[in-house]
Computed example of a mutant assay.
Amino acid sequence: MSAGREGADMENGPIAAAAGGSHAHEGAQRLRPRGSNQVGMRQFNERVVLQAIRLHGPLPKAEIARLTNLTAQTVQIIIARLEAEGLVIKHAPLRGRIGQPSVPMALNPEGAFSIGIKIGRRSLDVLLLDFAAQVRERLTLDYDFPDPDTLFDEIRARLKLLRKSLGPKRGQLLRGVGIAAPLSLGGWQSLLGVAPQQAARWHEIDIEAEVQEMTQLPVALCKDTAAACVAELVAGRGRSVRSFLYVFVDTFIGGGLVIDSHLRSGATGNAGAIGSMSMGAALRGEPPRQLLSVASLFTLEKMYAEAGLDTGAAADARAMQAPWLPVTQAWLALAAPGIA
Results as ranks from 00 to 15, higher is better:
28 A>E: 08
301 E>K: 00
237 R>A: 06
298 F>D: 03
31 L>V: 12
102 S>T: 15
339 I>S: 09
183 L>K: 08
85 E>N: 12
284 R>T: 08
4 G>E: 08
234 V>E: 01
308 G>H: 10
111 G>W: 07
218 P>R: 01
68 T>D: 11
127 L>P: 00
280 G>T: 10
128 L>H: 14
214 M>P: 00
105 M>W: 12
289 R>G: 15
91 H>L: 10
248 F>H: 15
212 Q>V: 05
228 A>T: 15
13 G>V: 03
201 R>L: 15
2 S>W: 04
44 F>V: 03
237 R>I: 04
226 A>N: 10
223 K>M: 12
193 G>Q: 05
107 L>F: 02
195 A>Y: 09
18 A>H: 12
222 C>T: 15
128 L>C: 02
274 I>Q: 06
302 K>N: 14
101 P>Q: 04
53 I>F: 10
149 D>I: 00
136 R>E: 08
297 L>M: 10
85 E>P: 03
313 A>T: 07
121 R>V: 00
177 V>K: 07
145 F>N: 03
93 P>I: 09
340 A>D: 14
97 R>T: 08
219 V>N: 02
249 V>R: 06
306 E>Q: 14
332 L>R: 05
187 G>L: 03
5 R>L: 09
318 R>G: 08
56 H>P: 01
117 I>T: 09
102 S>H: 04
81 R>E: 14
284 R>E: 12
270 N>T: 14
62 A>L: 11
13 G>E: 11
257 L>Q: 00
219 V>A: 06
220 A>Q: 07
187 G>D: 15
151 L>V: 11
159 L>T: 06
236 G>F: 01
79 I>W: 11
84 A>S: 08
227 A>I: 06
213 E>L: 11
206 D>R: 11
167 G>I: 03
204 E>S: 11
164 K>N: 06
166 L>C: 07
124 L>W: 07
326 P>H: 02
263 L>A: 04
50 L>M: 13
114 S>N: 06
152 F>S: 05
231 A>Q: 12
340 A>M: 13
337 P>F: 10
114 S>C: 12
225 T>S: 13
20 G>T: 02
112 A>F: 10
153 D>G: 14
141 L>I: 04
277 M>F: 04
